[in-house]
Design a protein around this nucleic acid. Sequence first.
DNA 1: CAGGATCCTTAGCGATACTG
DNA 2: CAGTATCGCTAAGGATCCTG
Lengths: 218, 218
Amino acid sequence: MPTSRSYRDSCGIARALDVVGERWALLVVRELLLAPQRFSELRHALPHVSSNVLADRLRELEHNGVIRRAPAAAEGPRVYELSERGRQLEPVLMALSDWGVSVPEPAAPSSLSATSVLIFLRRAARPDPAAPPTTCRLELGGRVWTIRLASGRVQVEPGEPAKADVSLRTDPKTLSALLTDPDALATACADGSAAVVGDLPAIGRLLHAVADPWPSGG
Amino acid sequence: MPTSRSYRDSCGIARALDVVGERWALLVVRELLLAPQRFSELRHALPHVSSNVLADRLRELEHNGVIRRAPAAAEGPRVYELSERGRQLEPVLMALSDWGVSVPEPAAPSSLSATSVLIFLRRAARPDPAAPPTTCRLELGGRVWTIRLASGRVQVEPGEPAKADVSLRTDPKTLSALLTDPDALATACADGSAAVVGDLPAIGRLLHAVADPWPSGG
DNA sequence: CAGGATCCTTAGCGATACTG
DNA sequence: CAGTATCGCTAAGGATCCTG
């Protein structure tokens, strides 16, 4: 039975929280920000939410027009995706992310989804605008992503790249660690937690775009 | 007994929500955004939060460095104010406000605090940059604010202005309605829900800055 | 086996009453 | 005024069970 309690406050902030303020709601939106996901993928990305609560949130978010059950194509498994309104929550998530990076890590064991790392990567990366455009194939937790570095920006998309300069396979925690310490890439490759095929320095440029951001105006 | 549950997720978004994701927490931050407030003022601004929950949230937010009990000056009543970290939540609140304005109003009876309206006013106002600088004394719900319009910006501060061009006394709901329909000012003055002393057209310019914003680039 | 629904327990929330 | 104490309610958490 879905939740429907309200702050009964006409302020826009309170009205937003009436819709996405329930527990787990914004983390579900986070998971759908870069690509549609199936129920089981959401469970894997948010291992600490119980299935009934997740089902409740999906129902409520759908009812409030934030997400949508993707075109129930014949045979295809059911997929959840953000609506246009849901996508407009991106500034909220980015602001929370900016603020949250300076909150101490929760006590272990803590989870870290592929989407989380990629959102942070895209947000924090400040590549050298003069660096050559690079396309990277990233295999992260059983799913393939296309990362593009071009003209001082980083773009993240789900799916196989048409053509990649380099391919990296790893897991979210290793990638997160590499974004802090790019020099650990050699070690990660050695112990098997990461694997690179192709233009190795391109991966270095990607990691350094986060760890040692190009000084932008601000 | 304060809450202390965590999403156990290393993502910055989840870490932020570990601190300000509990019910009412962000609305408490909202209330402190423009000025420090006392416990009873917070209760008045958030009439639907029960006193024990409010006390819990204040404790937790203080413990997490978001707010601070203002210098417990001798004799002075206890006042809560945002810390520097708390003030850095402003982009989160602004993003939520931007998104929430298009969420339908909650069913009546709903509350609307003075701070809420002023945050919206400041956010939504796009005054004509060529309009003459104006200082307005605003008495809203028993508290006095200084509103300054200058060079295309609106500034809101607590307290008496040194010198005001115009003075407006009203309540949050009336002011909110006037921001949507500035022409209702005459009616509001007539029925006593608003009172203006001084440069009346200056109030019109303020209201129109929100209702009919100056077309900015974007 | 994915995609939930059901059940039970616990803990946060809401409302009211009470105290320094 | 500024909270605390108490209590019923309901959402969250966890495990298990159903269904196509």
